[in-house]
């Protein structure tokens, strides 16, 4: 038994080449799911193996990596993935959005606008936006090939008929570049507008499902909707109780067992920077007591 020796960023160069080919194809056909020979990774499927493989394939020694989960750099899985790349690639890491060249994310897009020098890598659990309408891959691939997206519109319509609203609140389907309907991964629909016309390259990796797809920079991404029911991002009607932000996505935190709760920024780096700049919550007379 010989002790294993691992390559830079874990994956062997042959595998990286294979993944890079898939990425290039994905960029060439925005929103199209490119099958790739996903590898077993040393973290479980469903915990970011697709994102990790994409990151491992694009990472160079000069890159600075940021990893977030639920908008936070400090959640356990983000810590684990960041440590993985520190260990296997020895790259610099950061929690500051603007300092990162590669940002791997689960479930959020950072509040700070991204630039042309950045790549945002999403972890994707179920890449197929039509999956819960049609479980068969053979069928859904045909539907994409024919741009047969009526089923999705019927689903959204039925939501409105039943609830008065579209009941999809995250992983809200989008149309990319006027062609493919795409699952933006389970980001809240609050983040959907940031997908469009982004300066940064956005890559999506689904390890278990063996798919990679992409939104090239400055690509139009439209959240599906109807003329009489236009798309509406959702946000709790409150200000962050740490930095006072009124335009960021908020996490609700339960503070006691008597129904007390507070709202704080989901993007921890954004919130910390605002506080460092002197922003703070201004208590409103009317909202002093919650719950």
């Amino acid at each position: 038994m010989s002790a294993p020796v691992y390559n830079f960023a874990y994956l062997d160069e042959q595998t990286k080449r294979m993944i890079r080919r898939a990425i290039l194809k994905a960029i060439a056909i925005p929103g199209y799911q490119v099958p790739f020979a996903s590898r077993e990774m040393p973290m479980p499927y469903g915990w970011g193996t697709g994102g990790v493989q994409v990151t491992a394939s694009i990472l160079g020694p000069d890159d600075t990596l940021k990893v977030i989960d639920q908008g936070s750099d400090d959640t356990t899985n983000a810590v684990s993935i960041r440590k993985f790349f520190v260990k296997t690639a020895g790259v610099e890491t950061t929690t500051r959005t603007e300092d990162a060249t590669v940002i791997q994310t689960r479930h959020r897009i950072p509040e700070t606008a991204l630039t042309e020098n950045q790549v945002l890598v999403y972890q994707v659990p179920i890449p197929e936006p039509l999956r819960f309408l049609e479980p068969r891959e053979t069928e859904t691939r045909r539907m994409h090939a024919l741009s047969e997206y009526g089923l999705m519109h019927v689903k959204l319509y039925e939501d409105i008929a039943r609830h008065g609203h579209i009941a999809t609140t995250y992983a809200y389907p989008v149309e990319v570049g006027g062609r493919y309907v795409m699952d933006p991964s389970p980001i809240p629909k609050f983040d959907n507008p940031k997908l469009s016309d982004s300066a940064a390259l956005q890559l999506f990796g689904a390890g278990r499902e063996k798919r990679i797809y992409a939104i090239p920079p400055y690509t139009k991404v439209k959240s599906l909707d109807f003329e009489d029911h236009p798309f509406e991002p959702y946000r709790h009607d409150a200000a962050c109780e740490l930095c006072g932000a009124t335009h960021s996505y908020l996490d609700e935190v339960i503070t006691d067992d008597k129904g007390g709760r507070m709202f704080v920024c989901s993007d921890t780096d954004f919130c910390e920077q605002r506080r460092a700049e002197g922003h703070a919550h201004v208590p409103d007379q009317n909202e002093a007591v919650h719950g």
Binding site: G46, W47, T49, N77, H107, Y170, P186, P188, Y249
Partner: peptide, 15 residues
């Protein structure tokens, strides 16, 4: 992996 990934935080979506 996928069954157990439900242990990961989902508070953004849940919110």
């Amino acid at each position: 992996g996928f069954v157990e990934h439900l242990k990961l935080p989902h508070y953004v979506d849940f919110q």
